[in-house]
Amino acid sequence: MTRRAWDNILRFRRSEEGSLVVEFVILFPLYLAFILCAVEYALVTVKQSMLERSVDLVVRDIRLGTGSGPTHDQIKEAICEQTLVIDDCSNNLQLEMIRQSAFTGVTLPAEPDCTDRSEEAKPVREFTNGPPNELMILRACAIVDPVFPTSSMGRALANDDGLIALSATTAFVQEP
């Protein structure tokens, strides 16, 4: 009996059936992690570029609309209409517009002021429509959820709250 068990063990050891399964079990999680990271990064990049595009289109309309000084809510609504991929844009977008001197340089705060979903709505940091021929800086910051928050890319892009902050900054001159 022990001889037959020993022969079965040796035959099992020499058999190469199922060796591909071992490679699959080892490599599949690595491939899956790579694919999840790539998809997460691609979706965040699409959201970032759509935010930048919408801010540029709205600022172009502001520059060409001579004499009209749109309000904060009008600009925010126009940006949200253009940005199709940011969920609940009106609640997740924070705008900041600052008058700057073209001769002294741009003095923006280093970190954009993003909306914190856990707090009450914060007032606008600074939002002033400038006089004609004044340099204006408009910065939009949107908070988005990662698609795969447990992937390594989702954790790397997210802040302490597990959310991703996207910002777009542009400059324009108020036309008279």
Rank of each mutant, 00 (worst) to 15 (best):
M1G: 13
T2M: 12
T2N: 15
R3E: 10
W6P: 00
W6E: 12
N8K: 14
N8E: 07
L10N: 09
F12R: 15
F12P: 00
R14P: 01
R14F: 13
E17F: 13
E17Y: 13
E17W: 07
G18I: 05
G18M: 02
S19T: 10
V22R: 01
F24L: 14
V25N: 00
I26N: 05
F28T: 11
F28G: 13
P29I: 04
Y31K: 03
L32F: 15
A33M: 03
A33E: 05
F34H: 07
I35E: 08
I35T: 15
I35P: 01
L36M: 09
L36D: 10
L36S: 12
C37S: 15
A38M: 07
A38T: 14
V39K: 03
Y41T: 15
T45I: 03
V46Q: 14
V46M: 15
V46E: 12
K47I: 01
M50H: 15
M50P: 10
E52C: 11
R53S: 14
R53E: 13
R53V: 03
V55I: 03
D56W: 00
L57V: 02
L57G: 06
R60A: 05
R63L: 11
R63S: 11
L64K: 07
S68Y: 11
P70C: 12
T71Q: 05
H72C: 09
H72Q: 09
D73P: 00
D73S: 08
D73L: 01
D73W: 00
Q74S: 12
Q74I: 14
I75V: 09
E77G: 02
I79Q: 04
C80M: 03
E81Y: 04
T83H: 12
T83I: 05
T83Y: 07
L84Y: 15
V85E: 13
D88A: 07
C89D: 09
S90K: 13
L93M: 01
E96T: 08
I98Y: 02
Q100R: 12
Q100G: 05
T104C: 01
T104R: 04
V106I: 07
V106T: 09
T107I: 08
T107Y: 04
L108H: 03
P109F: 03
P109A: 07
D116Y: 09
R117Q: 14
E119L: 15
E120C: 09
A121S: 14
P123H: 11
R125D: 14
T128C: 00
G130T: 07
P131M: 06
P131N: 02
P131V: 08
P131S: 07
N133Y: 08
N133G: 04
R139V: 00
A140Y: 04
A140P: 01
A142K: 05
A142I: 02
I143R: 10
I143H: 06
V144F: 06
D145Q: 15
F148E: 11
S151E: 05
S151N: 05
S151Q: 08
M153R: 14
G154M: 05
G154R: 12
G154E: 07
L157C: 13
L157V: 06
A158T: 10
A158M: 10
N159T: 10
N159F: 02
D160P: 03
D161R: 14
G162W: 08
I164T: 06
S167T: 03
S167R: 06
T169H: 00
F172V: 04
V173D: 00
V173Y: 05
